[in-house]
Every structure is written in C-alpha cells, then in structure tokens.
C-alpha cells in the first residue's frame, strides 16, 4: 500500500530534478546515484527544506506540497547528524517531542526509551562532542524517530563513519529500519548500503530516475554505465538480431538469450578470458584488444582493455604473469556466449 506518493520537480540554476517516487508502508527505498545526481535535493524537497518548483507530495493521503518543514510528519537523519552541540544526547532526542507539544517529563521519558532502543542508555547526559561517530549516528536516528514520523529520510547515514563502525552500524540500522512502520527513504552513493538496507532501489542520474527495482533485477540487468559499474558488469547497448546484438560501432556480441530491437548486452569482468594470440575453438565472442590499465581488485587484477569495445576484465596474478601484462600489450579477448546476457532496452 502506497504511503508516500511524490513527483518532485526542483529547478535551480541550470539543474532540474524531476523525480517520481512512491514508497509503501514499512518499505525502505534507496535513492542511489552518483554525486550531483540530485539525491540530496530530492531529500530536502521531501523534508520541505527546498521548495518544489512543480509536482506534488502526498503522505498518508495528505497533500504536503506546500507545507512548511516543521508541520510535515517527516524525520531526517542528516549526513553529519547535526546534533545540537549545546544539548545533551537526551535533550537532542527530546527536542522533537517537546516541539510537538509534549511536556518535559514525557519528552524525556520518550527520549530515554529511544536511547535504550539504540543501546545508548548510559550516554544520555553526554554532549554530542563526547560521542563517537557511531554513537552520534544512533542518537541522530533516535532523534528522528522520536517524533514518530510517517516518512523517515536518511542522507548518507553511514558516510561519516570509519569502515569498522560502518559495518556494525549498517547491521543495526537495518534492524531499526525494518521496525519503522512508516515509509523510509535512504539517500546514498554506496551500493552496499543500498543493497543491505533497502527493499527497493531507485537509481537517479542527472535528476532523473534511470532504473528502479529490487536488488536482483538491477544487478542482473543494469541499464546505464553507472549502474553497470556499481554492480561490476560490462554493459553495451545495440540492436538485437536474434542471438547477436550489433553495437553502434558495428561490433557484434553473441548471447544465448534472444533479443530483437534496442537491447543491452552485459557480462561480468570475470567472464573475459585473455589470450596471447587468437584462440581457436568454442568462444563465440573474440576480438583483438590493447591493455590500457591494471589495478588490484581483491585477490585478482582488474585490467582495462581498448579495442572494438572498452572492457574491464578480471584475471589472476598467475595469468597476468604468464601474459606479461604491461600497458600497450596486444592481446585477444574472449567471452563465452553462455556468460553474456542480452535483454531489451525498452
């Protein structure tokens, strides 16, 4: 059931955000995109901090398009938390309930309950400057949730944390988001945060939705270079002609899938095999390539190849040594049709 329905249009100095977004009750949606895609602008528009140039926002059946931020049932966890430095953790959490007309005692009781939920019962009297990054993040979450928001917004909630704290906090955040009965929108540029925390991903580039769906669909069938890079796939667009997809350059890639018309072809870097000379035998897709770059990628090496198509390939260090991989090296690349996926672009 749809709890939040929005069409956000924000125009500002040459940038245009035009985003249609719906979130169901209890659902967590991740707004994922590169820097400057308009993710934070969308979040600010939902919170009422940036006015809409057009479109609308309804929440739980109420039209909030022109409602000021303080009257919206929306809670926000800001990127660097913005805990009030002059208030204790407890007073930070009690701030929202107090502004909603709750008396001091009740507000403090609510704050204590939330601090307990995020595991910070003993830290209520501390000022934000005496909290660690992870603790501050939890206080910020407690503060946003203490007003029982219909819509919870999180702006890069884990970006300010170090890798170790991030891992723990991510798991904990997932638990809290699952318990939130309202709608949740998470803005992030980290695909892992999105995959772990969200039920559905909405990918924005240049102020527009380029793809949306659950994690499995998006990782299997990316529709833009950005998404393909996020999920680690080589992605090309061309015309499907049965088992073959002809790219604009004229190059043809063969897949086991059958597609006709405008289509994408994708394969993972690990599917690319490199040979010192033209291989004979089974692979349907072979082409001459020139090595342009080598980088470490986990236990393997990721190489970039120029040629009829630009490709990322993963190879083992042993293979790299055997192939004598230095930039400028001429090689043959091969991908089996069975490892290549083709799917319609429309």
């Amino acid at each position: 059931m749809t709890l939040m329905d929005a069409h956000l249009i924000v125009e500002r100095g040459g940038f245009r955000l035009d985003l249609e977004l719906t979130i169901g009750r209890g659902e967590t949606v991740a707004l994922l995109g590169p820097n400057g895609a308009g993710k934070t602008t969308a979040l600010r528009a939902l919170a009422g901090l940036t006015p809409l140039s057009g479109g609308f926002l309804t929440l739980d059946g109420r039209d909030l398009s022109a409602t000021p931020p303080e009257q919206r049932p929306v809670g926000v966890v800001f990127q660097d938390y913005l805990l009030f430095p002059h208030l204790s953790a407890r007073d930070n959490v009690a701030f929202g309930p107090r502004r909603h007309g709750v008396d001091r005692r009740t507000a403090h009781a609510t704050a204590d309950r939330w601090l307990e939920r995020v595991g910070l019962t003993d830290h209520g009297r501390r000022k934000p400057r005496n909290l660690s990054g992870g603790q501050a993040q939890r206080v910020a979450l407690a503060r946003a949730l203490a007003v029982d928001p219909v819509l919870l917004l999180l702006d890069e909630p884990l970006a300010a944390l170090d890798a170790r704290t991030r891992l723990e906090t991510r798991a904990e955040l997932r638990r809290h988001l699952a318990a939130h009965p309202g709608a949740t929108l998470l803005v992030t540029h980290d695909p892992l945060d999105a995959l772990v925390l969200a039920d559905r991903l909405v990918i924005v580039e240049d102020g527009r939705v380029v793809q949306e769906g659950d994690a499995a669909t998006i990782t299997a069938r990316p529709r833009t270079d950005y998404v393909a890079q996020l999920v680690g796939l080589n992605l090309y667009r061309g015309r499907g002609e049965g088992h073959a997809v002809r790219l604009e350059s004229g190059f043809e890639l063969t897949a086991t899938d059958v597609v006709h018309g405008d289509a994408f072809v994708a394969f993972p870097p690990a599917a690319v095999a490199l040979h010192p000379s033209r291989p004979d035998g089974s692979p349907r897709n072979t082409w001459p390539a020139t090595l342009t770059d080598i980088q470490r990628h986990g236990d393997n090496l990721r190489v970039r190849l120029d040629g009829p198509i630009v490709v990322a390939a993963d190879i083992t260090p042993a293979a790299a040594a055997y192939l004598d991989l230095v930039p400028g090296r001429e090689l043959w690349a091969a991908v089996k049709a069975s490892e290549t996926r083709a799917y319609p672009a429309e």
Partner: peptide, 15 residues
C-alpha cells in the same frame, strides 16, 4: 553559524 542546525530543528517540528 551553521544554518543546517536550524533546518534540523525545523524537521523536528520547531517553528
């Protein structure tokens, strides 16, 4: 002063 604290207050219901 960082005006984002004021925005944070607004999202918490402060006039």
């Amino acid at each position: 002063a960082d005006t984002r604290y004021e925005e944070a207050a607004a999202t918490l219901g402060a006039t």
